[in-house]
């Protein structure tokens, strides 16, 4: 269980996020959405302990601000928006970095399996720095998957924190990555992802957290958050939601000409 209690974050003494409370349960995928500069990434960085915050964040009962790096690493993996590599490691070597010292350290074929999951097995021996942006993203996802390979383990659920995991991917790979995240959640793990694409969020998430101007505007099932009024207000432009009756999920926020 991820519990966020009334957190505030200031960057360079400027408040960027305030009064955010949120819970995410194992077995669910939570998407953090909102316009640019609304504090999505800042919220994610607070949840993983990357920025200082007031308030409290606990993950599986562990106080994120006080936990040791290895304690957190054992239960959650993080995929950043972009990862620059300092030295010419191969793709396989990068993914091996995700092998934790504990439960997954012996499973030597895990990196290959994770690489197969993101469809990049044929690039195993290539230099990571030579890959395209989208391929790098998928390698980083594979590295994160290797770190928390079993969605449930000793001490509870495992968690994936993804910062715009599909930002630089084509349509097919967007679906591939979201399906992997969905499968992880369905198997009992927890996923928290910062998302730009509301359609993808509506399709794959169990819960949306909508941020605007550093505050949590709404949180709940996609159909309760994706409403004309909430979105139009948050994004500052008129937006209309169309439902696809055949599908059951709410889809296609659509800008209307004003």
């Amino acid at each position: 269980m991820l519990q966020v209690e009334n957190i505030c974050v200031a960057l360079n003494r400027r408040p960027v996020l305030c009064g955010v409370s949120l819970t995410a349960r194992p077995g669910t995928l939570t998407a953090i959405v909102g316009p640019n500069g609304s504090g999505k990434t800042t919220l994610l960085r607070a949840l993983i302990g990357e920025v200082a915050y007031q308030g409290k964040v606990t993950l599986n009962g562990l106080d994120v601000a006080r936990a040791k790096a290895w304690q957190l690493a054992a239960i959650r993996a993080v995929m950043a928006q972009e990862t620059q590599l300092a030295f010419p490691f191969t793709v396989l070597e990068v993914i091996r970095l995700g092998l934790s010292m504990g439960e997954n350290a012996d499973a030597r074929d895990l990196p290959q399996r994770a690489l197969a999951e993101v469809g990049l097995l044929h690039h195993a021996a290539r230099n990571y720095q030579d890959l395209s942006g989208g391929e790098r993203q998928r390698v980083q996802l594979a590295r994160a998957l290797v770190q928390v390979w079993n969605p449930v383990g000793a001490g509870g659920a495992r968690w994936l924190f993804l910062d715009e995991p599909v930002a630089s991917l084509d349509l097919g790979h967007q679906l591939q990555v979201m399906r992997l995240a969905r499968r992880f959640a369905d198997a009992g793990g927890g996923v928290v992802a910062v998302m730009h694409d509301l359609n993808l969020s509506a399709m794959f998430a169990d819960k949306l957290a909508l941020l605007a101007e550093g505050a949590l505007v709404a949180a709940g099932r996609p159909d309760t958050v994706l409403t004309d009024a909430l979105l139009s207000n948050a994004y500052g432009c008129p937006i209309r939601i169309n439902a696809l009756p055949s599908h059951g999920t709410w889809l296609l926020p659509q800008a209307v000409a004003s």
């Binding site: 993983i48 302990g49 990357e50 040791k68 790096a69 290895w70 957190l72 690493a73 054992a74 959650r76 993996a77 993080v78 950043a80 990862t83 620059q84 590599l85 300092a86 030295f87 490691f89 070597e93 990068v94 970095l97 995700g98 934790s100 010292m101 770190q147």
Partner: peptide, 21 residues
């Protein structure tokens, strides 16, 4: 060695991999 390898991904990522950076 393990910490330095992880550090190639950046300090934040290394910490998420369990390294006391």
């Amino acid at each position: 060695a393990r910490g330095l390898n992880a550090l190639a991904l950046g300090e934040a990522q290394a910490a998420h991999l369990g390294i006391e950076v």
